[in-house]
Simulated scan of single mutants.
Amino acid sequence: MTGAAPTRVLVCDDQVLIRTGFATIIDAQPDMEVVGECGDGRAAVELAGALRPDVVVMDVRMPVLDGIAATRLLAGAEVDHPVKVLVVTTFNLDEYVYEALRAGASGFLLKDAPAAQLLQGIRTVASGAALLAPEVTRELVGRYAERIRPVRAAPVDTGLTPRELEVLRLIAEGLSNGEIAERLVLSQETVKTYVSRLLAKLGLRDRVQAVVHAYRTGLVT
């Protein structure tokens, strides 16, 4: 035994077979524990408050309260103690991806993804990282930048150093840590440090939120 507590997971999906399948796969992992299951977004919010999961695996289309609205209540900017949410859906629509991330989700997967990808996604989100490949970020930014960007971009005092601001702008372009390191001629560890610092200074959870923040505040045009 390593002594590390397992990642506590709440599974929310209105289809019983899918919900049970996810729970079975997750519970079989030595580093994970399913603490609850439910079939609608309202129940997910209530259970999350009672059970304090580390990660909620969330469907999008559900009765009572959909997954996007539930994610906003669990992980949105107004939440005092946000829960990490991994959205898993059958609908491969850019609009869902965009709305899920705006709502505060830390990642997005399709239900037909291999079980190993689901498990890795939970581990990634639980660690505090975002589950979005750089190419997905680029596509989202390219498609929705005008919607995210403010009508008038006023100067923003970010409190960031010039180098941290430069790293933030490259994150917003969809570059990975490795690509940023190559662009700025830095080590990946140094870039990782800059990313951690700027997220802390801006009060952001992950690089997905950093992308949205950069566009909404006019730091990237």
Rank of each mutant, 00 (worst) to 15 (best):
D94K: 13
G36E: 05
E33Q: 15
V97G: 11
D80N: 13
L51F: 10
A115F: 11
V88I: 06
Y96D: 03
G104R: 03
A75W: 02
R42S: 13
E37R: 14
V16N: 12
V79P: 06
L74K: 05
V64A: 11
D27Y: 08
D54A: 00
D14K: 07
V56K: 03
D94V: 13
R52C: 13
G107I: 02
R72I: 09
L47R: 11
F22N: 07
R8V: 09
T71V: 04
R61T: 12
D31N: 07
A50Q: 15
G76H: 03
T71K: 00
P63V: 10
L65I: 10
G67A: 02
A23I: 04
P63K: 09
T71I: 02
L65S: 09
A75M: 05
V79Y: 04
G104I: 04
G21P: 10
A43F: 10
G41H: 06
V83I: 10
M62F: 05
L86Q: 01
V87L: 00
F91K: 10
V9T: 00
V55F: 00
S106H: 12
V87P: 05
P63Y: 10
V16F: 12
G39Y: 05
R102M: 14
M58Y: 02
D40A: 04
A50R: 15
T71H: 00
L74F: 00
T90M: 15
Q29E: 14
V85M: 00
R102F: 09
G67N: 02
G49R: 08
D112M: 10
L109H: 02
D14A: 08
A103P: 08
E78P: 09
A43S: 15
V9Q: 03
A115C: 10
A100V: 07
D54Y: 05
V34Q: 07
A113Q: 13
A75T: 00
I18K: 09
C12I: 11
H81I: 11
A44L: 01
I18C: 11
G36M: 07
G21F: 10
T20F: 13
G49H: 04
I68R: 00
A77K: 15
L86G: 00
T7W: 04
V79A: 08
E78K: 14
D59M: 02
D66T: 01
V97T: 12
I68D: 02
D31Y: 03
A77P: 13
R102A: 13
R8S: 10
E99F: 13
R19W: 10
P114Y: 07
T90G: 13
V55K: 00
A43G: 10
D14L: 06
V60K: 06
P30F: 11
A115G: 08
D13W: 01
E99R: 15
G107W: 00
C12D: 09
F22T: 07
R61E: 14
V35H: 06
L101G: 07
A69W: 07
V56N: 01
D80A: 15
L109E: 03
C12S: 15
V97F: 11
D54V: 01
D27K: 12
T89K: 06
I18L: 14
E95A: 13
E46Q: 14
V9P: 04
Y98H: 13
I26S: 09
V45N: 01
T89H: 04
C38S: 06
T89R: 05
T71P: 01
S106T: 08
G67P: 07
A115I: 07
A113R: 12
I68K: 02
R42Q: 15
V34R: 07
